[in-house]
């Protein structure tokens, strides 16, 4: 009798969340997948027209499309620039904050700010910094006599990708910092002391004691940041995409998510867009799966 009322309470407590998840997440996720097996495109069929089942043709078309792979390649390039930069800066910041010094709390707060800001604003901020006519980077470098004239930093396609990566690193490094700092602080101090007493130099202590102990946290940070950066959207949108107000989207920084947006909301190619979305999911799922397992094992 007791158990049954407890069960009723439990079902009542999870019902609202359950309904929301079924209705707004599971159902649309499944029907988007099904839509990916059709040629749905309101621009072709009209709003009232019906789509046809075409099997895996959208997937075949996407996997055979140069544009898709070009955007995957661009995204991978961004990830390849972001991950090492972010982890190095994050680690350096964590090691600084792991010391005892006056102003530590202040510095920690300052270093967390970029992460708190809306990524869209960060992209805007960097586009203003990099502005070729009046930007701060030009002003600063000119004043330091490092350049003799103002540069248009975002002029070339590869430069655009590079600065997208920089803005993304700026946005995300505090995450790596926080994760690595927590790991650093959980390293027992006597292990490090023992190595020091044995005559190891700081660099040696780091390489053979600290770093191996940091490795799990490093892996977590990398997995998360892989997924986050693979799905980069906001920062590109305001930094280089130039797609606001219905304008043409800049092709040079068209990462996978920007491509997907264009396919769906500009070309109205719903079937194809659904297939692209699921391909992006599959591409980043391996890493995501690991993350779920981790959460699950810690929570249940």
């Amino acid at each position: 009798m007791r158990i049954r009322s407890e069960e009723r309470t439990a079902y009542l407590a999870i019902l609202p969340v359950g309904l929301l998840l079924v209705f707004f997440v599971y159902y649309p996720a499944i029907s988007t997948f099904l839509l990916g097996l059709t040629d749905a495109n309101p621009r072709v069929q009209g709003l009232e027209g019906s789509a046809h089942f075409i099997g895996l043709r959208n997937y075949v078309q996407t996997l055979g499309s140069g544009e898709f792979w070009a955007s995957v390649w661009r995204t991978v390039l961004i990830v390849l620039m972001v991950l090492p930069l972010e982890l190095v800066i994050g680690l350096a910041a964590a090691m600084i904050l792991n010391e005892q010094f006056r102003g530590r709390a202040v510095l920690r707060t300052i270093a967390i700010v970029p992460w708190m800001l809306p990524p869209l604003v960060n992209g805007f901020m960097w586009s203003w910094i990099l502005n070729g006519d009046y930007g701060a980077l030009n002003g600063l470098l000119y004043q330091l006599h490092l350049i003799t004239g103002y540069h248009h930093w975002l002029a070339s396609p590869s430069a655009q990708l590079f600065w997208v990566a920089v803005a993304q690193v700026w946005t995300r490094f505090p995450f790596a910092m926080v994760v690595l700092l927590a790991a650093l602080q959980s390293i027992p101090q006597d292990v490090v002391e023992a190595a020091r007493v044995d005559g190891a130099r700081p660099a040696q202590v780091f390489r053979s004691v600290t770093f191996p102990l940091l490795l799990p946290a490093f892996t977590v940070a990398m997995a998360v940041e892989f997924i986050v950066t693979f799905q980069i959207f906001d920062v590109i949108w305001s930094l280089t995409a130039g797609g606001a107000a219905g304008q043409v989207i800049n092709p040079f920084t068209k990462a996978v998510m920007i491509l997907n947006y264009e396919v769906v909301f500009r070309n109205l190619d719903l079937g194809l867009g659904s297939a692209v979305a699921y391909l992006i999911l599959v591409l980043s799922m391996g890493v995501g799966y690991v993350f779920v397992r981790m959460l699950y094992e810690r929570g249940a």
Partner: peptide, 21 residues
């Protein structure tokens, strides 16, 4: 089971349900 079905959604990007949504 319900807990797992919920956690499965934690890393799920909204993209994959966007169109039908």
């Amino acid at each position: 089971f319900l807990f797992f079905m919920m956690l499965l959604l934690v890393p799920l990007p909204i993209w994959v349900s966007l169109i039908a949504l």
